[in-house]
């Protein structure tokens, strides 16, 4: 059983390689944190000083004093959570429908949905902006959430996951007299928790980090998401005069997500066990 034990341990060589790779991965992040802890005036002269003390929290203090930052944070949370919940609901339903139900045109419709994966956002953003203007949806939460809900990847992902669940389960449930709906809701959906977790995390991330749509849809500062709000704080030449502040903003914007990831990392990685899309 040596081979088996082997596969569960990192060899010293692999460990060394991974450590180097991890260093490359983390160095830019540490650099960012270091810059965020320096005074702007000092960085304007030489960003190399970030390697050395003195460090300061003045940039973080400035962010927290910015009256609107918490409002933006709240907007981002609402939009990202709303998008995530919506995507999970819609894609679970549709994924189940495509994976398990027989109906005319199923294959063609599925391909039609997959086409969406190839649509560049720039190809739809302007007509969509006009559409939302016609419905008065700009500067509103629905206006920010809705575009994220047309997520072909989510449907594909959930469909593949449902396909991986043995059909015997369905047959047994249907024999017991369960309706299609009960089967979906009570039997199959609970089994997809790993896929939900994965899709949820990626949807949340994509929504949290979205930039162009909120930039042109939420034009009022009380409706900004965090990404757009922080961008609005950058002056035209802020990179020179407020580098430390800018970097502190970067850290601040990433922090909530890092915390979420740290809390859920077991579920996310572990859960993906079954979630492999392509089963």
């Amino acid at each position: 059983m040596k081979g088996l034990a082997d596969r569960h341990r990192l060899s010293p060589l692999a460990l060394a390689g991974l450590s180097v790779a991890a260093l490359v991965m983390v160095a830019p992040l540490l650099w960012t944190v270091a810059l965020s802890l320096k005074s702007n005036a000092e960085l304007m002269r030489d960003s190399g000083t970030a390697f050395f003390a003195p460090y300061t929290l003045e940039n973080y203090r400035a962010i927290l004093q910015g009256s609107q930052v918490f409002g933006w944070l709240l907007n981002s949370l609402i939009v990202s959570l709303g998008t995530t919940l919506g995507v999970l609901a819609l894609c679970s339903l549709a994924g189940y429908g495509f994976a398990r139900l027989e109906f005319p045109g199923r294959r063609a419709l599925f391909v039609f949905v997959l086409l969406g994966l190839a649509v560049p956002e720039q190809a739809v953003i302007l007509p969509r902006h006009q559409l939302f203007a016609d419905f008065g949806l700009h500067n509103s939460y629905p206006g920010l959430i809705l575009p994220g809900l047309a997520a072909p990847f989510g449907v594909f992902f959930m469909a593949q996951y449902f396909r991986g669940i043995p059909r015997e389960l369905d047959e047994a449930a249907l024999l017991d007299g369960a309706s299609r709906w009960t089967l979906f809701w009570k039997v199959l959906l609970p089994l997809t928790w790993p896929a939900q977790a994965t899709l949820g995390v990626f949807t949340f991330l994509a929504s949290w980090n979205d930039y162009w749509w909120p930039l042109i849809s939420a034009t009022r500062s009380d409706r900004f998401t965090l990404t757009v709000g922080l961008a609005s704080s950058q002056m035209n030449y802020a990179q020179t005069s407020g580098l430390g502040y800018l970097m502190a903003q970067a850290v601040f914007a990433a922090l909530p997500i890092l915390i979420v990831y740290a809390l859920f990392q077991k579920q996310i990685v572990g859960a993906m066990a079954g979630a492999a899309a392509a089963r």
Partner: peptide, 20 residues
């Protein structure tokens, strides 16, 4: 008073296109 990200013309264009 509304502050937009520099230089703000993409937003202004969007606002005018949306009639607001």
């Amino acid at each position: 008073a509304n502050v937009v990200a520099w230089p703000g013309y993409a937003q202004l264009t969007a606002q005018i296109a949306a009639g607001d």
